[in-house]
Structures are given as C-alpha cells and as structure tokens.
C-alpha cells in the first residue's frame, strides 16, 4: 500500500492547518492510501510523526507557511507547498504523487 505522511502548519494555527490536514487525509483515503498528517497548530503538535511512520512513508507532503523541522525527511520523496495549496489544489498535489513526480529531499 502507498503510504503518505504530511505536516501542516500555519502562523495562527487556528483554522488552515486543520483544513489542510483534513484535505490531505481525505484525498489519500479516496485513493486507498495509508495516511498520517501531523498538525503544528495552536494546540501544539498533534498526531506527531514517529520514526516508524517516516520510515514506512512513500511520500511526504509539507503544507506549511511556517518553518517545519525537515531533517527528519532526508532521503524521502517530498513535496513542499503553501498551506492554502493543500486546500485549494489538493488534487494537483496528489496527481504529482500518483505519477511519482516528487524529488528526493
């Protein structure tokens, strides 16, 4: 099974972080992919990605307008977008994943 992980973060961490996470989760589920999305919001880090999650992940989506700790994704296929893109253009992100267009971080 294809496994997707993601990190969502925005400055206030009140609304868009969670909308982006929901959008990524739904698009992944529609495709039958495994998915886990970490949110860095006002309630702190939720659904934190563990080493095992990162290890088994095929693709990493970073949807953030703030700095995300990236070194942990070294060697993974990563796409980095603005948090709004995950909400507005989620399909485009997944098209790139479906056709294996991501670059290795």
């Amino acid at each position: 099974m294809t496994n997707i992980i993601g990190v969502c973060a925005c400055p206030a961490g009140i609304a868009h972080t969670y909308m982006a996470a929901e959008s990524i989760e739904n698009l992944a589920k529609q495709r039958g992919y495994g998915v886990k999305v970490e949110t860095n919001g006002s309630a702190g880090v939720e659904n934190r990605l563990e080493e095992a999650d990162i290890e088994k992940a095929d693709y990493v989506i970073i949807a953030a307008d703030t700095k995300v700790e990236m070194e942990r994704f070294r060697g993974k296929k990563v796409i980095e977008v603005a948090v709004s893109d995950a909400i507005r253009k989620g399909e485009e992100i997944f098209k790139k994943i479906d056709s294996n267009e991501l670059e290795i971080y």
């Binding site: 609304a15 972080t17 909308m19 006002s42 309630a43």
Partner: peptide
Amino acid sequence: IFGIFVPAENVDNQHLKILSSLSRKLTD
C-alpha cells in the same frame, strides 16, 4: 463567514480542539 477568535494566553486546549474540528468539517 466564520470568525474564529481566541485569547492570546491561557486558552483551554479543549477549546482549541473544538475549533480545529470545526475547521476540519468546513472542508466537507
């Protein structure tokens, strides 16, 4: 329009979770 307003300090985590679940629902 959904206006979401949170105090700058000492916010109950439970409230933040409720607000995040609203934001999630709005994508539906």
